[in-house]
Design a protein around this nucleic acid. Structure first.
Lengths: 194, 194
DNA sequence: CAGGTGATGTTGGCAGTGTCAACATAAAGG
DNA sequence: CCTTTATGTTGACACTGCCAACATCACCTG
């Protein structure tokens, strides 16, 4: 035991979040163990409790981080660029890419069992993500349209469609030869908005 | 301890499935404990292992039962009756009603963490449920249409939409004043199919 | 620069969990 | 009647989240 073994880790909170996200992605959420996590990081079994009041609190923080990442991805695909033509399509692709690249995190974010909603950070960042969708649908529909109610329903429909598709994809319920799924999505929205 | 306390329960398997379904619906899936279950039923902690190889096996059986119930509901709403006009709408309502009345079960069915797919019963009954959807979309589109590929994409789109909406509903992500959600659904499909 | 104070990490322990091995009971069938 | 077999019980093990008591160290104030 050299003197350079730090008694204090220095960035345990970040290390925990990071390790936990990696762990749920590789072994599944239900196999996540705080003790294992601490062990892997090289810290004692109860050290995490100095940064998170409970396992649930850790998961809530992870979900919040997930919404932050999702919002960031969506906002990036909202920026003006080469593919500005079909902005909604681009956003949808980002959304589904996110769910696909971090399926366990995505499931956790919408589990409600329930992490998510209770935390302020979750509400804030999911609001940001939702905002991107709202703006995109707004832009597409702005050519004179009906009630606000109607608009809300359309937005939710679009969200439900993409969210549902993401779910089917990451839960392995789609036949293998449907890479065209996302393209089809674009058609659907187009059809609906006309 | 009277002599009439049966040493053998008689229908433990069914009692376990039943109690477990009730328990996950009232306390959440992650709080389900085999020992508690056994205790509530009035049997020793390891008795369940005579009927299920593991907790996971129990959950798989529950998921299978869920798909059986869902398939039954959907098939019932397929029968000729008063509301045969908009069959797809009726089926969608059944689907969403199912998810809403048994949210925890519905989540378990699509968890993949993962129960579901591996079991034969799950595959069979989810196939039955999917068949109902296929037939309904078929009927609606049969007025001369494009490729089979296209048809498949449409079916999956419809499923994704309803599935996604169910998810948003049971995870409490929809603003409270959207009871009109299901009606909007009908509009969307209609729009898409035209 | 001394010393105390608060944030961070550790040790030991408790109650609860899924699961296995060994044993007990009772219903069924020759 | 006696054995077989399905079913249920007991005891134990390794693991979990979490709490209380203690250790270490960075930092601030005198």
């Amino acid at each position: 035991m050299t003197k350079t073994d730090h008694y204090h880790h220095g960035a345990l909170r970040e290390a925990l979040l990071d390790s936990a996200m990696r762990a749920i992605e590789s072994d599944g959420l239900e196999r996540l163990s705080l003790r294992d996590l601490a062990g892997t990081i090289g810290v004692s079994k109860t050290a995490p409790y100095r940064h998170f009041a409970s396992k649930r609190a850790l998961l809530e923080a992870i979900a919040a981080e997930g919404f932050r990442l999702l919002a960031a991805d969506l906002e990036r695909s909202e920026e003006p660029g080469p593919g500005t033509a079909d902005r909604l399509g681009t956003i949808a692709r980002s959304y589904i890419d996110f769910a696909r690249s971090r399926p366990a995190l995505y499931r956790l974010m919408f589990s409600k069992l329930g992490y998510s909603l209770e935390s302020e950070a979750c509400r804030l960042n999911s609001g940001r993500a939702f905002g991107v969708l709202v703006r995109a649908v707004d832009a597409r529909m702005s050519t004179g349209w009906r009630s606000v109610e109607n608009q809300e329903a359309v937005i939710l429909s679009v969200w439900a469609l993409v969210h549902g598709w993401a779910g089917l994809l990451i839960d392995g319920l789609l036949p293998r030869q449907i890479p065209a799924a996302e393209e089809r999505w674009a058609e659907m929205v187009q059809a609906f908005l006309s």
